[in-house]
């Protein structure tokens, strides 16, 4: 009924990562019921296992967990920074073809990062070149995508910086002179430069002052809604997940503990761990 109108952009099935000896037998010896992701019989760490979710255009999906939950590993596998041990990650590209990211070479992955998939990092320094101007950081993905007209590059950069509320008179300033919140906005502008269908947000406001974070979250929410991108938001902070996402999942010891509509997960958490997390957040 309603599903036919949804355009699923990201489909994650059975995603998993083993570190260390990578003994597949460790899977049954680890998990939330056993209270650990580390194999008691060896040195395999089941950082993530059996992770399933999907995100459509215009939707934001949250991944919540404490440190060690596996949420960062999941993000990094989708981003291509970590090689997955199992599963598939299907991306619907701009040309409407679907590709399993995990079957691509590192070189093909890098090509996707130009205009199909962007990442907004927790530390803006990881997603920006601090020695380059704000405009220059946006010129980077644009030229990588083949833009060769200086005037048009400037125009597009100015448009994006305006959209992310960065004062235009700072467009030619080196990014290292910007405050943390401003750096994050420039990172957002850069991530959106080539209109990628999928954007990953990794703890997008952790480390920012509360008032600054609020402004950045507003902006992210606004951008997700108005640009129709598919977003995955990873955070340990329920307030961020609540603000930005309509559906989310909770991870613990590498497994999905619960998945549902965000306000339902916060209002009526079913799993004991989720209840603990929510109670702690509400306290």
């Amino acid at each position: 009924m309603i599903s036919t109108e949804r355009q699923v952009v990201l489909e994650v099935r059975g995603l998993g990562k083993l570190f260390g000896d990578q003994d597949p037998g460790a899977v049954v010896r680890t998990g939330p019921e056993l209270g650990t992701a580390k194999d008691p019989q060896g040195n395999t760490v089941v950082a993530a296992w059996d992770v399933d979710f999907e995100v459509a255009a215009g939707e934001a999906f949250g991944v919540i967990g404490e440190s060690g939950s596996g949420k960062s590993t999941v993000m990094r596998m989708i981003a291509g920074d970590v090689t997955a041990s199992a599963g598939t990650v299907r991306l619907r590209k701009r040309d409407r073809s679907r590709v399993d990211l995990l079957g691509l070479t590192p070189s093909e992955r890098r090509a996707l990062r130009i205009d199909e998939l962007s990442i907004v990092h927790q530390d803006p320094a990881d997603g920006l070149d601090l020695r380059v101007t704000a405009g220059g950081n946006i010129a980077d993905p644009l030229t990588a995508a083949g833009w060769r007209n200086f005037g048009q590059i400037r125009e597009r950069a100015a448009e994006l910086l305006t959209r992310t509320e960065v004062p235009l008179d700072r467009m030619d300033d080196l990014v290292k002179t910007f405050s943390g919140g401003m750096k994050q906005r420039v990172q957002l502008a850069r991530a959106l430069a080539n209109n990628p269908p999928l954007v990953l947000f990794d703890e997008p406001t952790t480390g920012l002052d509360a008032s600054v974070a609020a402004g950045v979250l507003d902006l992210i929410r606004d951008l997700i809604e108005s640009l129709g991108i598919a977003a995955v938001v990873v955070s340990h902070d329920f307030a961020v997940i609540e603000m930005l996402t309509s559906r989310c999942m909770v991870m613990q010891h590498g497994r999905m503990v619960e998945q549902g509509v965000t306000d339902q997960l916060l209002e009526d958490p079913i799993a004991p761990y989720t209840q603990r997390l929510v109670a702690a957040a509400r306290a």
Partner: peptide, 30 residues
């Protein structure tokens, strides 16, 4: 917002009747 434990909640929509308790998350949001 609260997940029913049992029973059905049927809403008559423009596209026909829908059981909210059995709806996929994404469809519920829509």
């Amino acid at each position: 917002t609260d997940l029913p434990t049992a029973g059905t909640v049927i809403v008559d929509t423009d596209d026909g009747p829908v059981d909210v308790t059995a709806l996929a998350d994404a469809d519920l949001v829509t």
